[in-house]
Design a protein around this nucleic acid. Structure first.
Lengths: 221, 221
DNA sequence: GAGGGGGGACGTACACCGTACGTACCCTTT
DNA sequence: AAAGGGTACGTACGGTGTACGTCCCCCCTC
């Protein structure tokens, strides 16, 4: 019976494990305490309240994404790599993803990805405002994609084809396109979809850059 | 004392009002009942449970976005209009936005926007798979943007410049780019940012379309 | 070794939550 | 008049976050 001394880190990882095992709704201070074989109120010696604990979960998950940035690669490759790194969250901690994304954390954990992204964009020749804009655009896309991937955001898939064989339950008269494309809407290769978006964004940004380069106006508007 | 008969609609709108007034955390069956001057359990005559009620909230909010689609406009204009329509949610019901976005609803309320989007893209000449891909891309971007706009998703703004004048609290040595661009990161013109993203996506899709048109391969892969 | 002090673990208690269940009322149909 | 169904409501149960007080152990000082 080692009885490791109970720390904020141990509590947070217990919470993460619990979320991944049983979902975010299963999280309660009592449940976590039981998981750790500990009295409920002992948790409060290391964590001010539940909200802070969940912030800790989000920070920990976010800080565990592996950025293997290669400064020698060209910027599209670096952007690709960083975008995929974010998507690891949805794979490693699918049921924590919502938490990570829905909680504005002011800690340094969330800053590092931004720092990396800004650095690569600046090195690619973007000025400050453009770099910030592009980063925001990417974050919006990634957040939206991850939410769809973990099944929380409306995939807007019409038919859950749950225990009903054909694709009905959606009136073809009211929604002709949706019902016609139901098979496509029902299935979603998240990876392919993500890659498609990333490539398209990169391509768009390339022409944006070229355009700026062409007009040679550093920063108006 | 008219004592209007209490209906699902009345309950849902009461919930929406409450959320907009005091935030999503304030929502409880007891609270809503009190708001309506009604016993708690009376609600259950019209709503099976709290979860369904929140789904109702999401559906109602989503169904209230105004689509003024002009079939004569060119497709970029129609896409612009539809994207902006979505963004109305964040304006009309900022504190409900998270709910709308985080709840996969299988009702028709969520299908109509997709139907419209698919229709305009098909009319623009996209085949089924491409139309679906593009719609998904736009939804991801819009969802991510709205979440940032309502302040729930990590804006990754480093300094909240809350009651501290200058931009400190972020170590310039560790985060040179972030601290250098702190003023830009701190302020965010959501509308401009959104429009920037929409324009960039439209532009990217245009070249995608042109490329497909050029190779003249209708539908492989 | 004796005394003391601080911090962590814990139990109890309170207010609140969602909702299952039983009851009382009214309104319509027979 | 009788019966039946839908609606409103009160009560009750198990669960939640957490404020507060207590206990105990370890370490430091004398």
């Amino acid at each position: 019976m080692t009885t490791e001394p109970l720390s904020r880190a141990r509590i947070v990882t217990a919470a993460i494990d619990l979320i991944e095992r049983e979902g975010a709704d299963a999280v309660s201070m009592r449940r976590i305490a039981a998981e750790l074989g500990v009295g409920v109120m002992s948790l409060y010696n290391h964590v001010p309240n539940k909200d802070a604990l969940l912030n800790g979960v989000a920070e920990t998950v976010l800080s565990e994404i592996e950025f293997t940035d290669d400064p020698d690669a060209d910027w599209p490759d670096r952007v690709r790599t960083q975008a995929r790194a974010f998507r690891q969250i949805a794979h490693h901690y699918p049921r924590c993803t919502m938490l990570v994304v829905s909680r504005q954390l002011s800690s340094a954990a969330g800053l590092l990805p931004v720092e990396r992204a800004l650095a690569t964009l600046r090195s690619a020749g973007f000025d400050g405002p453009d770099a910030v804009r592009v980063v925001r655009l990417f974050i919006a896309f990634i957040v939206g994609s991850l939410l769809r991937e973990v099944g929380v955001t409306p995939t807007f898939a019409p038919v859950h084809h749950r225990h009903l064989a054909g694709a009905e339950a959606v009136d073809p008269a009211l929604f002709p396109e949706v019902s016609a494309l139901a098979p496509l809407l029902g299935a979603c290769d998240h990876e392919a979809e993500f890659e498609f978006g990333v490539e398209l964004l990169i391509q768009a940004i390339t022409v944006l850059q070229a355009h700026k380069e062409g007009t040679r106006r550093g920063s108006e508007r």
